[in-house]
Amino acid sequence: MTGSTRVIHHPIQLIVRQPLTPVNIYTVLPGHIRRVVGVKVVHSVGVHLMSADTYLPAIGYLSLEFNNRSYHMGHVDVSFDNRAEASDAYLDTEIDIIPGSLLSGHYENKVFTGTDYQRADGTITDKWSNYIVTIYLKALSDD
């Protein structure tokens, strides 16, 4: 670790455009990220257009693999939470990152999967809204 190491918050946005189709993640992390010390996955926008609820405990879940698929961290639940008391803390990790390595995984949507959101022919109805999930990596960077 060099003296210039600092903490950055690296966001990775993914869009969910179909209720049933898993979203695959294949993204290369910037070469200056040395270590991921925390992970946070939040719903950003979209679900509020489909539901009047302020809290849905699990709209889907995310599986994450670091370091060119050599380390499967496992699954994280993604909630929709518009309440004031929602926690915005990070989940502690401590994952040494191979510089410039692949971050892979998948996100599977678990809500609004009925036929009034996606018709049998696969097209989506106007009740469905695309939504965006953001993965924040709290990382040590030496850029």
Partner: peptide, 13 residues
């Protein structure tokens, strides 16, 4: 066809 696993999920389209 949908194949689900711990590390990967695929929907054949």
């Amino acid at each position: 066809t949908r194949i689900t696993s711990d590390t990967h999920v695929t929907l054949l389209e």
